[in-house]
Design a protein around this nucleic acid. Structure first.
Length: 266
DNA sequence: TTCCATGTTCCGCA
DNA sequence: TTGCGGAACATGGA
């Protein structure tokens, strides 16, 4: 599930329930998810550190380790979650990195498919630079003009441009489909076919979709009835018009759209 | 048993 | 140079 709204909810959970707690030990279950660090180095880096702050950049989570300990980087892949739980609670399934707090509680990062990664980074700013991540949709100063400038001159489809983390960071398959559905744009329209006004409206739709998704806890079951998300099924009725939801592959990803109000390209 | 999956990266190709 | 499609990654649910 982890796209920007999901990761933002994980961040908020961690901020509310894990900040200020001291890590007594850590356990790594999937070495293949470690990037640029060994399991023992990672354990050593977090042991004895307090979690000082929790930031999100696109789909990436960065946890600040106290006393100059740098930052723990977590990417959840396709199936990862962050879970804070108490001493007596059941551990979540597929926990791949678990921090054990001195007070007995835990913070686990799960990943059923072992996609995603864990690592240590010096600072959020250098991390963003090293990864070549585009601006976060909520970043201060990233307005509709900035959005247009990022997309301008790209030759591919609007879907692949929005999915590209170097263009802007945080959107994935599900929310890109949702944004294009609400904007009434076919996913395969070339970016070059979109005029300034349309791009401005697309920016506004993106911001509104992401804000609403976070307000509703990024829970698909709580999204508005008029959204695509509750109707993401081939052959479903469009909740906005008389059209039908159709499934196709765009840029190698399963793509859902309305065959009526998302006009065909060309 | 077969197909599919919310992400990323790498490769070959246009 | 830019971007696309496909494969790969590892696992489990329908």
């Amino acid at each position: 599930m982890p796209e920007l709204p999901d990761v933002e909810i994980y961040r908020q959970d961690i901020e509310r329930h894990a900040l200020g707690r001291k890590v007594a030990s850590a356990a790594v279950d999937a070495d293949r998810m470690l990037r640029g660090v060994s399991a023992s180095s990672l354990r050593d880096a977090v042991r004895g550190r307090t979690l000082d702050s929790a930031r999100r950049v696109g789909k990436h989570l960065l946890l600040q380790l106290g006393e100059g300990g740098g930052w723990l980087h977590v990417h959840s892949g396709m199936t990862g979650r962050a879970v804070v739980y108490g001493e007596g609670d059941d551990a979540p399934a597929h926990a791949r990195l678990r921090l054990d707090f001195e007070d007995g509680g835990h913070l686990a990062f799960t990943s059923q498919r072992k996609l995603g990664e864990f690592g240590l980074v010096d600072a959020p700013e250098s991390f963003v630079r090293d990864r070549g991540l585009g601006p976060d949709p909520w970043e201060e100063g990233f307005d509709r003009k900035g959005f247009r400038d990022r997309l301008a001159g790209r030759r591919g489809s609007v879907k692949s441009a929005l999915m590209n983390q170097e263009v802007l960071a945080g959107l994935g398959n599900v929310y890109v489909d949702e944004i294009l559905f609400q904007a009434g744009l076919h996913p395969e329209i070339p970016v070059t076919d979109l005029d300034e006004n349309t791009l401005g409206e697309l920016h506004a739709t993106m911001v509104q979709v992401l804000r609403t998704a976070v307000e509703r806890g990024a829970d698909p079951g709580r999204m508005p009835e008029g959204w695509l998300l509750p109707h993401r099924e081939d052959g479903a009725s469009c909740p906005r018009c008389d059209g039908t939801i159709v499934k196709a592959r765009v840029s190698g990803r399963s793509t859902y759209r309305c065959d009526r109000h998302q006009e065909a390209p060309g």
